[in-house]
Design a binder for these strands. Structure first.
Lengths: 119, 119
DNA sequence: CCGCATACTATGTGACGCAAAGTATCAAAG
DNA sequence: CTTTGATACTTTGCGTCACATAGTATGCGG
């Protein structure tokens, strides 16, 4: 694990909703998509993603569909209307938290410098 | 609570270490300092902060000192060398996570736009 | 003297990500 | 041909963290 799981708490569900925003994906593809984020920072284990998907489905934020046409059966997940709404709300909250952390002096220094030095 | 506690998970401890970076503070002052972050996004309850401080002290990341000189006794906490080291490491991890979230298209859009449109 | 802000302590709960283990199919390498 | 690795989904139990709730206690303003 590249990043202590402590910092993924909360962000995990949001990250899953976000990758599903592009279109429906099956569980394993979601795991792979997150594993490829820069710095491997959002890497979530299978044992994290699958239960999370069941949870999200239980909450009505995603819906699932079995695709048996390929060599291996795949369970595709897609955002529901409620899921899209939740994604928007959670995105705002995430931005709010990162903004507060910035206010404490954490992160985004490169961009901040760019902002003042440029334009 | 302004922000769902889900998004504070993990960030909470980092936020506490960060406010202690400026200098020693007593528990109640830490609670107040965090409550004043923009959007109240990092608001942590007393019942969260105090146990966290005991925990941090147990890990050797902060040390405490009773000040009985004032009207009310106050327990001041300060970063140890290990705490400062941990703060630096955790700051990097936090940046790593926020960078990954940005890569998924979350947050900081203003800066991203600025970066490409400018310079 | 009553309520409110200050200041610290303690117990129990729930959610989340993980490790570990299990099931099963398929492709490639030995 | 068999064994290894990647693919793909499921399940159980655990540790951590923030919270609600409750309790203790002092000082100050009305």
């Amino acid at each position: 694990m590249a990043v202590d799981d402590q910092f993924i708490r909360g962000a995990g569900m949001l990250a899953v909703l976000k990758v599903l925003e592009r279109g429906e994906l099956y569980g394993y593809a979601i795991v792979e998509a997150l594993a490829k984020t820069p710095g491997d920072a959002l890497h979530l284990e299978q044992s994290t993603v699958y239960p999370m998907l069941y949870n999200l489905e239980g909450k009505g934020l995603v819906r699932s569909r079995w695709d048996e046409s390929g060599a291996r059966a795949r369970k595709y997940y897609a955002l529901t209307a409620a899921g899209r709404k939740r994604l928007a709300a959670d995105s705002d909250q995430w931005k709010s938290v990162t903004a507060a952390m910035e206010a404490l002096g954490l992160g985004r220094l490169a961009f901040a410098r760019l902002e003042t030095a440029c334009c």
